[in-house]
Design a protein around this nucleic acid. Structure first.
Lengths: 344, 344
DNA sequence: CTCCCCCGTTGAAGCGCTTTAAGACGAGCG
DNA sequence: CGCTCGTCTTAAAGCGCTTCAACGGGGGAG
């Protein structure tokens, strides 16, 4: 074994090196780092000088081990290609920065096994908490069982029953209501809804909002389409059908459950001579890049992804610190973004 | 202080608990984990049973501290919104999985200070290595100085001089050449190039490929545009100019240095009655979602982002393990993806 | 001038694990 | 029957840091 410090062997100065150079004890060096107030001005300065001289970098591993806590948060993202999750990541990053925590992101691609494996990895690293984005109840159910009991988990984008975890989600029903209300407000009455597979809970919720708004206005939905997917291609197919109905004056607006869907619809409709928004007003959902990058910018319902990430971090750190903890479900409110697809 | 294991205090079993339950020493438990061959069959089984009974989760922190190595790799991404970096992240994740390492991703948004701060954070966590995506030489230069000497760094997406780091990059010159060659091959001769700010090295390289291909073919470029940015809006502006030239039969094809640029050009051109690809053939660069999601799918040059990530991980782990290490610069080859914007 | 208290500082114990030198034990050999 | 050898197992020494009981020394109060 080497004499004192093994990191030193790798060219790295350790706390003991700093202590020696500054002529103080190792405990004092630690105090400089963690409780500067306890150290006298002179000593503090001397130690700090020694640190910079040696280019001292504290070892977080040792620190966490000794202190019994970790400065790292884990984040499991469902789908890196979806801009909502990118927003969540950004927000989480900001929140982590504010709480001076590091964020360890990873991407499950929606696969349950990877979700579980990342959670396990995080648990082994004794992270302070894990933020988990989720889409459907199947995954939620699976995860409830397998989860290590001592790691605080915050579920994002899914309104978890508060029994097991904290959660932060967005009110999809309200979003659907907003979108539909907007179409009604600009005078449309023959409104169609294009949704997606029944399994997707967010889509179902958006539809509920649609239905509520229509009922409130005493208007009957012109059509409800439920494609197998929620991507551009599915939208295109739906758009072809809609274009026909538009030409027969049976439809004058559509609320699509995702922006990709909306973009596909817009493309199909335009290629068939339908004018947007004159003949057909369109509202999408997600505030995806696809929406504002579309030839005709599409009105949409924006999810507060960043805030979701930020709040998630807050809840996780709160749970870590606080003694007795109530799991709480925060529900955020989406906002309507009006673009050319619904305004002259 | 608590008697033996403090993790136990938090409800977690430690190695000593396992040892006690299995009736062996703590060292034997460690051997079960790290050198199963040294342990007799009977003991091994008994210990393993004890582990599952106690739901034992090894503490990676303590493990790394004692063993002096880390199972974590850091990855600093320049821009989460750019699909190239998402691909890199995916590849790195796969590579890490294969090397049974954990990956800690983070997003610098192209800001130098955040890059530096993440590198510092990673260094404090004594990660095994850091993968750093980079765009321009300014950042590269800055970083060379500030970098902790003992953490292996692999630069991605930028051909670093091999003096300081390993790097994995893509041959942008060749990509530009491929794109231009393709336009020439389909019979176009009045070819324009739309680039971007001089500072962006990748864009400059793509232009060099363009120039080489044109020279080889003995064709004079119809026009070279250098907008201030490389986004859709910049493309739209360029497209307006191009449309006019097309109508005067001065341009029949364009190579845009990014897909967003290309998408903007396509949109502007179409809105001005230019038919794609008949009047104007377009090739973009990046294989961005924007490209295949465009109303007219745009031909593009695809960067092997996943492979870049994977190779980066390999180089990092190699550098970590291997004793004497040569920094090497790997250069990958991009490929042409032909879509409707260049075929009838 | 003494006593006490507080401020700064120290030394040692310990975080959960790996590693290694040394020990225990049975088998095989002369 | 004693000895060597090899196989398993153990005890103890760290890894770099935090924490805390204890300590020393000044200054204010008496």
């Amino acid at each position: 074994m080497r004499p004192t410090s093994s990191d030193a062997g790798r060219g790295r100065a350790g706390m003991s090196d700093v202590a020696q150079l500054a002529g103080v004890s190792i405990g004092t060096v630690s105090n400089v780092l963690n409780h500067p107030a306890r150290v006298s001005g002179t000593t503090l300065e001397r130690v700090q000088r020694a640190m910079t001289m040696l280019n001292y970098t504290p070892n977080v591993l040792a620190r966490s081990l000794a202190a019994g806590n970790s400065p790292i948060l884990g984040l499991v993202l469902t789908d890196l290609a979806n801009s909502l999750f990118i927003d969540i990541a950004r927000g989480a990053e900001l929140g982590a920065e504010a709480a001076s925590m590091a964020l360890m992101m990873s991407n499950s691609d929606g696969r349950l096994d990877r979700e579980a494996s990342y959670i396990a990895t995080f648990a082994q690293s004794r992270v302070a908490g894990v933020l988990l984005t989720l889409n459907d109840e199947q995954h939620y159910g699976e995860l409830v069982g397998r989860t290590p009991p001592d790691t605080p988990i915050v579920v994002l984008n899914y309104a978890a029953p508060t029994t097991h975890f904290c959660s932060v989600s967005v009110d999809n029903e309200h979003g659907g209501y907003l979108a539909t209300r907007h179409l009604l407000d600009i005078g449309r009455r023959r409104i169609a809804f294009v949704g997606g597979p029944e399994a997707l809970r967010p889509v179902r919720d958006r539809e509920r909002g649609f239905v509520r708004a229509m009922r409130e206005a005493g208007v009957t939905p012109a059509l409800e389409l439920m494609p197998d997917g929620v991507n551009r291609a599915d939208g295109y197919a739906a758009g072809v059908r809609l274009a026909e109905l538009v030409s027969r004056a049976e439809v004058d607006a559509v609320f699509a459950a995702t922006d990709l869907l909306a973009a596909g619809i817009a493309q199909a409709a335009e290629s068939r001579g339908v004018t947007i928004p004159a003949d057909l007003a369109i509202v999408g959902y997600d505030n995806n890049h696809a929406a504002w990058d579309s030839p005709i910018p599409i009105s949409t319902v924006a999810q507060p992804g960043e805030e979701m990430g930020r709040r998630g971090v807050e809840m996780a750190t709160a749970e870590t610190r606080g003694g007795p903890h109530e799991h709480g479900a925060t529900v955020l409110t989406p906002t309507l973004v009006v673009r050319r697809s619904t305004t002259g």
